[in-house]
């Protein structure tokens, strides 16, 4: 298998403060990878750097194409869907409008309409609420909407920033089952950032653990899950 995303020597800055200190990792095409680490480790920053939402240096290649110098919206057009921390829901718009916005880069109105239906099949709650303002959805429903909105892009790579945040355990399980299905059926490569390490390691093939902007552990998800030292010192379970 080939790499869909390759990252070399990634450094990112908030003003003068350096938040990432030379990350290096890659994602296999079709894989699920998880990025773990404590609060403030630099997980969100890594995802933001991939989409050029923050000043960074280093090499990022998506499907062989360098991303340096491309704007966020152009990177999205290449097929990278980013579900940001906090979901980024357009709260004043309806559920349906949120889904339409997800497909903003596409021109195939037939395909878009079909995909809206497909999302409603994945997430039946959204169908019931299609004309409702997205801000009135529950937290779990909004997270479903955020994932559905990202899928409307027909992405090749999906970046998810703490999708389980604030959700009830049952909802989290559903959500991860859907992510696994999307990865398997639609061949979407997934990079998921999680606090809930146990759950993320269960669906991921590869895992990276970062601490203060550096990768401290990389390997098969199962190996990371089995490594007691890593679990105790970085993952807290």
């Amino acid at each position: 298998m080939s790499s869909l995303l390759e990252i070399e020597d990634l450094r990112a800055y908030y003003g003068q403060v350096q938040a990432l200190h030379g990350l290096q990792f890659s994602l296999e095409d079709g894989s699920v990878t998880t990025l773990l680490g404590a609060n403030g480790a630099g997980k969100t920053t890594t995802l933001r750097a991939i989409c050029n939402m923050i000043r960074s240096t280093g090499n990022i290649r998506f499907d062989g194409k360098p991303l340096a110098g491309r704007s966020t919206e152009d990177i999205v057009k290449l097929g990278i869907a980013h579900v940001p921390q906090g979901r980024g829901t357009f709260t004043r718009m309806t559920v349906e409008e949120n889904l339409q916005l997800g497909a903003m880069t596409r021109r195939d109105s037939r395909g878009i309409a079909d995909d809206v239906e497909r999302m409603y099949d994945h997430f039946p709650k959204l169908r019931e609420r299609s004309d409702q303002q997205a801000g009135t959805l529950s937290g779990g429903e909004q997270q479903m909407l955020a994932v559905a909105r990202a899928l409307m892009l027909r992405p090749r790579l999906m970046l998810l920033d703490e999708p389980s945040f604030g959700l009830a355990p049952l909802v989290v399980r559903d959500l991860f089952a859907i992510l696994a299905r999307i990865n398997r059926d639609d061949k979407v490569t997934i990079l998921v950032v999680e606090q809930n390490a146990q759950l993320a390691l269960a669906i991921a093939g590869q895992a990276y653990v970062i601490e203060t902007g550096r990768i401290v552990m990389a390997g098969e998800a199962s190996a990371v899950a089995d490594n007691e030292d890593i679990r105790k010192s970085y993952l807290g379970y």
């Binding site: 999205v76 997800g102 903003m104």
Partner: peptide
């Protein structure tokens, strides 16, 4: 729709590919 999205949440709008 894109204009409304760009006005209400510029960052999210960029993340769906809108040139804000």
């Amino acid at each position: 729709l894109a204009m409304r999205a760009a006005a209400s949440l510029p960052e999210s709008a960029r993340l769906v590919g809108i040139n804000v």
